[in-house]
Design a binder for these strands. Structure first.
Length: 527
RNA sequence: GUGGGAAUAGCUCAACUGGCAGAGCACCGGACUGUGGCUCCGGCGGUUGCGGGUUCGAUUCCCGUUUCCCACCCCA
């Protein structure tokens, strides 16, 4: 049996009704704040994400669905030549026919900058495949993950396998434009796509843009409760030229207040808004340096994770939850000490407005964000009932993002809601929402299907939810079905009714049955 | 990617130290020919995730594998 692939799932009724409720509420609330919907493609050029989200982030370095597109077979000569020229140690090209099996040939590899590289594009036999499998985690198609590299296949394994070297971006820049492979990636988040569209369509000429989106995103990470490889996000962005007010703390507060309103409208209880200012990118560089210095003498006493983070990403040390580390973390410098006057004023005013409009929040000066593009205000809404993943949404300001991917200056702020998790919390509080029919139409006796179909069309055109039976069903079965689908009324279409034009309509909840002339049916059922 | 747990009917779950694969719900039919919810009776439903091994015999024990769940890593 073919099953949904790992980490993906079908959303079935009646759950889909809950999803629709969420999305309908989102549209109503967001549009009240004058946001308009944007739909961007679900895949983009890989470099959009690596530049916007950050080359070194986990999202980009190992958790994206990526493939190569746009390189022709003939162009491999150029590709190959370039690789060989750059890596004189690669001798393995000799004797490798891309189209022939090479069972005995060892994998061509070389070592550089502490990294193992494999060369791409040749045919693998089952024997070679088995060798590979020993050293690798096997995926059916598309990608083989090794410890230090990823292997991307153009076609189904185990036929032709192409190896993606890790320094791919360099290759892309050096190859002639017309032979450059275009790497494409399923979007792991939507902000980069929105900003790309903003730049591409010169939306800055329209002043302040308030855009929202609802849609699937993709990450190749290990599935867990509420974490899927295809997951859904709801998000909104305010972006525009500074002169249109996009940098104003009014926007930060507006977004936060809108989110509080949304959660209340959805009936989600017990959420907490935590926020912090992570400063401008210049301020963060200083802060990072200070953290590194402060960590140097104490990191040996910390947990293994923190020792690693102290080197790779000092900011994340602040996130550590290990109890023994807390006293050390308490003594580390705080980003607030590095904010300049503008940043501090900005953050102060956000808080002032929130207090004025009555939105409760907590300052969490250890809140940091994982993506490179965030500046100044960063926030999270958390909810207790979510296990290890207690954040249902997160976001922040990204004043430099547009410029970092080649656009005009365009300060902005946005957020993304994990819709899967949001729906999950709603399921716990609301249970399921069953779609209910207004009326079940029960044709009774030979030839009654025709009249029943006519009636169904009339009632449905009157905006009623009508389910239609079949003349071969016994009346008892029709009643049972009507109950099962939660119909409020059952309409009996028998010979007597058809002849007289007066139909038997029974209220299934009260048991009351009345005779109703054809023309009054819709009104009676609605009433 | 790491560690732990699990997988049996459409759903929720049983099956003792290895011995005929079961129940409830759901579904279909009947009691009941144009009047439902209740009740009673009957029926359908399975390659026990997949592949191998041990055994006279495996849902049960062992190995591999896939998927899900929980936690870690990480994160909107």
């Amino acid at each position: 049996m073919i099953k949904a692939v790992r980490g993906t799932r079908d959303l079935l009724p009646p759950d889909t009704a809950l999803w629709n409720f969420v999305e309908k509420t989102v549209r109503e609330v967001f549009e009240a704040y004058n946001f308009q919907e944007i739909r961007t493609p679900i895949f983009e050029e890989t470099q959009l994400f690596s530049r916007a989200v950050g080359e070194e982030t986990d999202v980009v370095s190992k958790e994206m669905y990526t493939w190569e597109d746009g390189i022709k077979a003939a162009d491999y000569a150029v590709y190959k030549k370039w690789i060989t020229a750059r890596n004189p140690n690669v001798k393995a090209w000799q004797g490798i026919n891309p189209n022939a099996a090479s069972p005995a040939a060892p994998l061509p590899t070389w070592h550089e900058n502490g990294q193992d590289y494999f060369v791409f594009s040749y045919r693998l036999t089952p024997e070679v495949m088995n060798e590979l499998k020993k050293a690798a985690v096997f995926r059916d198609k598309g990608i083989l993950s090794f410890n230090n590299l990823r292997l991307v296949t153009a076609q189904a394994i185990p036929d032709t396998v192409r190896f993606d070297v890790e320094n791919l971006s360099v290759i892309c820049e050096t190859l002639p434009v017309d032979t450059r492979p275009i790497w494409q990636t399923l979007r792991p988040e939507n902000t980069a796509g929105v900003v790309r569209a903003y730049i591409e369509h010169k939306l800055e000429k329209r002043g302040l843009n308030k855009l929202y989106y609802i849609g699937p995103q993709f990450r190749r990470e290990r599935p867990q409760k509420g974490r899927y490889r295809q997951f859904y996000q709801i998000g909104a962005e305010i972006i525009g030229p500074k002169s249109a007010g996009s940098e104003s703390p009014v926007r930060d507060a507006e977004i936060l207040e809108m989110l509080a309103t949304l959660l209340d409208r959805l009936g989600i209880k017990g959420w907490t808004l935590e926020m912090n200012s992570v400063g401008s990118s210049a301020e963060r560089v200083k802060f990072n340096e200070a953290l590194r210095v402060a960590l140097e003498p104490v990191k040996d006493k910390m947990c293994a994770d923190c020792q690693r983070r102290a080197v790779t990403n000092p900011l994340r040390v602040l996130d550590c939850k290990v109890p023994e580390d807390q006293p050390i973390i308490e003594k580390l410098p705080r980003i607030s000490q590095f904010l300049d006057e503008d940043s501090r004023k900005h953050f102060d005013q956000v808080q002032e407005i929130l207090k004025a409009v009555g939105v409760e929040f907590q300052i969490n000066d250890r809140l940091v964000r994982g993506l490179d593009y965030y500046t100044r205000t960063a926030f999270e809404f958390t909810h207790g009932a979510l296990g290890a993943q207690n954040a249902i949404l997160g976001g922040g300001r990204y004043d430099g993002l547009s410029e970092s991917i080649g656009g005009p200056p365009a300060p902005g702020i946005g957020f993304a809601i994990g819709e899967d998790r949001l729906v999950m919390t709603l399921q716990e509080t609301m249970g399921s929402v069953q779609q209910k029919a207004d009326v079940y139409i029960a044709p009774l006796g030979n030839g009654m299907n025709i009249e029943a179909a006519r009636l169904a069309r009339e009632l449905r055109r009157g905006n009623l939810v009508a389910e239609l039976g079949d003349e071969t069903f016994r009346l008892k079965k029709s009643f049972e079905t009507a109950d099962k689908i939660g119909a409020r009324y059952i309409l009996i279409v028998g010979e007597n009714e058809t002849k007289s034009g007066v139909f038997a309509l029974k209220n299934l909840a009260t048991g009351e049955q009345v005779s109703v002339p054809r023309s009054e049916l819709a009104v009676k059922i609605k009433g």
